[in-house]
């Protein structure tokens, strides 16, 4: 399946673009996506944390991803 991933903050800078399109096996989990992205972009693994968001909610590690989901990578937040 084809996933579109939105990138923000330092994750956007590490990848070098604001969105990423990747092909993933059907039923890919949030954890699986992170493993794939860590392999492609080792600097992501050096962050204090990196979460996956699905449809504006933080996703648990085993959350399955779907093509139509709005998926984003969430590096450590620092609002306020």
């Amino acid at each position: 399946m084809h996933l579109n991933i939105a990138l923000f903050g330092i994750a956007r800078e590490i990848v070098g673009q604001p969105t990423l399109e990747i092909d993933a096996p059907a039923g890919q989990s949030a954890r699986g996506l992170l493993a794939e992205l860590h392999a492609r972009y080792p600097a992501l693994a050096a962050l204090s944390s990196l979460a996956v968001a699905v449809n504006n909610e933080y996703a648990a590690d085993d959350t399955p991803l779907h093509e139509r989901d709005e998926i984003a990578l969430i590096p450590p937040v620092s609002g306020g």
């Binding site: 969430i74 937040v77 620092s78 609002g79 306020g80």
Partner: peptide, 13 residues
């Protein structure tokens, strides 16, 4: 404010 700083998707450079 404490919870905002932990969960809200805003990044400061």
């Amino acid at each position: 404010i404490d919870t905002l700083k932990q969960v809200v998707t805003i990044w400061k450079k």
